[in-house]
Design a protein around this nucleic acid. Structure first.
Length: 421
RNA sequence: CGGGGCGUAGUAUACCGGUAGUACGUCUGGUUUGGGACCAGAUAGACCGAGUUCGAUUCUCGGCGCCCCGACCA
């Protein structure tokens, strides 16, 4: 693992939030130097932000791989003819296309989802029941020409999406995979630190199934209204809240509490809508031709990052769970112009790195107060301070981001605590 | 897309039909050095275009941009 010197990091923190951002996630992420705003709904990722995003992506990858997902990377540019086959090219049907043209005037789109191209791609790779089931996913930039970008990084026009598609022999196989995907999603949200406030939420299922499932993280910043049954740990999206649904789920109106929530994931059955329209069929055991049954499963990693920022922050700044923090330890030296302090800090950061911890070493020649304020703003879960005071006793100070008091401990104990945290 | 608000420096603001000032920030130097210190110096601004006018940041029109509410959101 690596040690990054903060004096080397090109991004700087800011004291004030920019005037054109109201949402907490964007204000904090910009102030802390994780992202940069290009225009409404379009953000760049800076080194700290990219590190965090990659941590999130790694967790998602691990869980998708665990259910048999195979990663690909499809193109953003999309062929008009393909989307006309499923009647999703017209602006009357899909109103958030970004469309552009080739030099020869042929129309293209920038992908807002990838059912069509992947279904066609798979026609070359699925031809027998022996080829099924399959699960294919990517983490890719999506483009959606939103009428109104809002909520900072939560609803952008260009954003990262993990989209997995399942290909199964029949509804039963699809249902089995769907359940596994549901569990994988639950693990993802647990691992990124949102598990206790993220609810499996029943939502509109479209044509081929009664329900789809959303994963909704409770937050005042959310755009969706959900009705939560806390005992059962499930929720119902307002858009499908009917007596029938309430009955289906075995809850009562009295048990439901209305909450605002952020949709961090969505899984749904596609049936054979795309396979039939695009000719994705296979031969069954008895030699018959049948359409592949599909499902689709999305998570927006950038939105997830914004949600974590939004939901877990305090008045001082960001608070990253260990699993997604850009660094494991923020090591602050105070009085680094003294050679022995600098040496002790460098030695400790190297030791931590050798033990598999990413360390951000604040070696900047600024006052302690600024370093502490920046550390709180950036939100790395563990802060370790090395100063003249501490090296006199061969010790250092350690403090969790969520704590207010630090403790003086030996280097060995500090390392132990980093490990056990 | 309907509605609303707003565009003066990174932030917050002031003044004004005669070409912009303050504070904070930022940068440099010095003194400092455990929760955003002090002193000195510096940096940086009227969204764009057209019109009216001798002269427009100021008035008019058009554009562009940003934010919010709603709608939308496989």
């Amino acid at each position: 693992m690596t040690v990054v010197k903060q004096s080397h990091l090109f991004t700087k923190t800011r004291r004030e939030a920019p005037s054109d951002e109201v949402s907490k996630n964007a204000q904090l992420l910009i102030r802390a130097g994780f992202i940069h705003k290009e225009m409404a709904g379009v953000y760049d990722l800076l080194p700290l932000g990219l590190r965090t995003l990659e941590k999130i992506n790694t967790i998602i990858r691990e869980e998708m791989n665990a259910i048999g997902g195979q990663e690909v990377f499809l193109s953003a540019l999309q062929d008009k003819a393909l989307w006309e086959k499923t009647d999703r090219w017209s602006d009357d049907v899909v109103d958030n296309w970004f469309k552009t043209r080739l030099k020869n005037d042929a129309e293209l789109g920038l992908g807002f989802t990838h059912e069509e191209p992947l279904t066609v791609l798979m026609t070359g790779h699925i031809s027998s029941y022996r080829d099924l089931p399959r699960a294919v996913y990517q983490i890719q930039t999506k483009f959606r020409n939103e009428l109104r970008a809002k909520s900072g990084i939560m609803r952008g026009r260009e954003f990262l999406m993990k989209d997995l598609y399942s290909f199964c022999k029949n509804d039963e196989e699809q249902a089995t995979f769907y359940e596994r995907a549901k569990e994988a999603y639950t693990k993802v949200f647990d691992r990124v630190g949102l598990g206790d406030r993220t609810y499996l939420t029943f939502a509109s299922g479209g044509v081929f199934s009664k329900y789809s499932h959303e994963f909704q993280t409770v937050s005042d910043a959310g755009e969706d209204l959900i009705y939560v049954d806390e005992k059962k740990g499930i929720a119902i999206n307002k858009e499908v809240l009917t007596d029938e649904v309430i009955n289906d789920l075995g809850v009562t109106r009295e048990s439901l509490i209305e909450k605002s929530a952020i949709e961090v994931g969505n899984i749904f059955n596609l049936g054979t809508r795309f396979s039939e329209a695009l000719g994705l069929t296979y031969k069954t055991e008895d030699g018959k031709t049948a359409p592949v049954v599909m499902g689709s499963y999305g998570i927006g990693p950038t939105r997830l990052m914004g949600t974590i920022a939004e939901v877990l922050a305090d008045e001082k700044g960001l608070i990253w769970p260990k699993s997604v923090a850009p660094f494991g330890v923020h090591l602050i030296e105070i009085g680094g112009e003294k050679a022995d302090v600098r040496e002790a800090a460098e030695k400790l950061s190297l030791t931590l790195a050798q033990k598999g911890i990413d360390v951000l070493h604040d070696d900047r020649d600024i006052r302690a107060g600024e370093k502490f304020a920046d550390a709180d703003l950036i939100g790395i879960p563990i802060r370790i301070v090395v100063s003249e005071k501490t090296i006199a006793t061969n010790s250092c100070e350690i403090k969790m981001r969520t704590e207010t008091e630090s403790q003086i401990v030996s280097y060995e104990e500090a390392i132990d605590r980093v490990h056990s945290s």
